[in-house]
Amino acid sequence: MKNPFEAFHHTGARKREIPLDTILKSKEETLSKILTGYEDLLKNEAKDLVWLMQYSTVIKAYSIAERGIEGLEYTAEDIEEFCYALDHSDQIPYLITGPAGIYISALCNHAQEQEICLHLRDLTVKINLLGYRLPTNKKLMVQGNVGDFTGIGLDGGELIIEGSGKNYTGAGMKRGKIVVRHNLGFNTGHGMTGGELMVGGRIKGLGKIVGGKLYERDQLIFPNEGIKPFYV
């Protein structure tokens, strides 16, 4: 019997591989590797879906994260893609904002680019601990709001938040600069020993600041006569 659709066979169809296919394939592969590293971190650090924010756990989680991304080639866009995958994708069984933030920080700190811009405005969750240990010569710009413990232990890098942050921003920072365009929460700059923290909006409360400079709406609020450095 004659095939009634024969006329459509090979009609104008070329279906060739274009570079876009390769780009998307490579993007998927990189994302998959990044996700594997993140899952390893969760397996080690948040077995019971609970992660306690402590000085020692942060350090340990960071070193696991560093091991997870060792030898991985990725770009700033891949990091951004990972952030969205955390939020939207069903590839990841759960999101714990602490380890996620440490993992993203490790990715940023070890990225090839010196300047990284993350567009996180559409994220429904606020990632904690972004910018952890950001080293000298690195600039991280975040479009959108962030969670708690942003820029803690900042190590000479420049962190710019085009939005608001929550509590403990800049806690324990040693050197470098944090710029937050809008507002910050409680315990801002807690235990910071150096560097600059500039806030465009309002700060709900300061932590026990040891050193460095803190500006609120261009006004130097630490050190000044009202707020003295806290010495342990």
Partner: peptide
């Protein structure tokens, strides 16, 4: 140029093109 693999006499705008080329248009 980047996603079709053709020389269209343009080039440049590397950063923008890098970001745009990662979108799954199809």
């Amino acid at each position: 140029e980047k996603i079709w693999g053709e020389d269209l006499g343009s080039g440049g705008h590397e950063e923008l093109v890098n970001r745009l080329s990662r979108i799954p248009y199809l």
